[in-house]
Nucleic acid binder design. Structure first.
Lengths: 238, 238
DNA sequence: AATATTTTGTGATATAAAACACAATTTTTG
DNA sequence: CAAAAATTGTGTTTTATATCACAAAATATT
């Protein structure tokens, strides 16, 4: 596994063309010509393969990462085992919480699909926050949304049984991540279990059940949702 | 129960003296004379009794609340039951996530001890974010810390057994909330159970166990921690 | 102070999901 | 391409914790 130790300084890599970037974040849309120039000079774009680590818990944090496109998992080394706490797709900023006020990363992030990421020097990013109110505003909006989503995810995890949680995850991949009823799971059964706080065995069993019940079409990691209405019922009532 | 429907407009109440406030937030310390004057005119201070609601899920959100002192619980109406998602003490901003980008509150907050809260008009707050980089910066720092704490709390909830979670909660109240080894729990057994995802019966049982084992001294809601080392052991190993 | 209501403690029972075990399949590697 | 490693499916057993039941205690209400 390739680990990208995230130290990016002025012109360390070829600068991307931030000014004409097709994937500008809501915040970056408020940057003026000068600021975008500054960003270009303090930012490096990287292509990530599935499995590439983006930042690692415990390591000195020095960049904010803007994931232009792709899918990532966030995870924490817990007491006994690693735990996936979030799966997200670009465009999105990664690691603002773990970089902004922390010396060392408090969690890790790894690409779980081919992705494009821009590593932005933290001081440059902070400059924008300090000097561009609209930029700061949009960053706050994104952080607020994250917190609310996390609250609701937390409730779901504790108030639903496994069938409900598996349903939720299948719908999440369908509606949020892939925007399609059929997709290839980016996780092993083990990781899937970890993600929704259960075991690989339970995941296997539930997916087989859903397959037999005609709710999904299952073929290894390939999932096709046949009866989304039913899946949403199960999400609510277990 | 008193519900304070949070609409605060210019001079609706007697203005507090923000300029000389002893409890200024890290962010507010960066406000200049003019801005503090503006804050005074768009802010109302309220004394809250135990049980007073601060804002309510589903209701139009129009204020950021700054809890100068006191203790609050945040909770969400889940699928089947209400769930406490967080307990915090002042000084702290409440409801930035639920107010900043949301029309309606996505969760509720209630005082669980005598508290003092300032209801700040959301537009005034947003003005500060837009025009004062240092203010925005500090708000971002607070939001980032919240997210990381939430991640770690989430891990604890899923990787620990009930004894471990009860230990965690007892330590949390001791070290974070009351800063003392003896305190009066601000929750019923039922709420305590809800807070750490278990039942009132389990809470009763575990507290009785801890009492018998000489780890705590238990008398109704009064808790005295006798052996914190042991409690921390249990927090780790169940 | 007396009554009603809520909260709490604790034993007995039920149950969902974890853990275990092992074979089958798929993927990775040399 | 063959061997090794990792992943997956499924039956059986175990276990932690929820649920149920009911009395005792504490708190709130009149």
């Amino acid at each position: 596994m390739f680990i990208f130790y995230t130290f990016v300084k002025k012109n360390m890599f070829n600068s991307p063309a931030c000014k004409n970037c097709q994937f500008k974040s809501a915040a970056a849309k408020f940057l003026n010509e000068d600021e975008l120039g500054n960003l270009e000079n303090n930012c490096a774009e990287i292509e990530l393969k599935k499995g590439d680590m983006i930042f690692k818990q415990g390591i000195l944090s020095s960049n904010i990462v803007y994931l232009k496109k792709g899918i990532v998992k966030f995870y924490i080394e817990g007491l006994y085992k690693e735990q996936i706490i979030k799966i997200a797709k670009g465009p999105i900023y990664l690691g603002i919480p773990t970089t902004f006020d922390e010396k060392y990363n408090r969690y890790s992030a790894t690409a779980i699909a081919k992705s494009n990421a821009c590593f932005i020097d933290i001081d440059t990013f902070k400059e924008f926050v300090q000097n561009n109110g609209n930029f700061a505003y949009e960053i706050i909006v994104e952080l607020c949304r994250n917190e609310i989503n996390l609250f609701h995810k937390y409730i779901n995890r504790t108030q639903k049984n496994i069938r409900g949680r598996v349903s939720d995850a299948l719908i999440f991949f369908s509606e949020i991540i892939y925007e399609s009823d059929s997709y290839k799971l980016p996780l092993t059964r083990n990781e899937f279990g970890n993600y929704i706080d259960t075991t690989r065995e339970s995941i296997s069993r539930i997916l087989t059940e859903f397959n037999k019940e005609g709710i999904i079409n299952l073929e290894g990691k390939k999932i096709e949702i046949l009866n989304k209405k039913q899946l949403k019922m199960i999400s609510k009532n277990g």
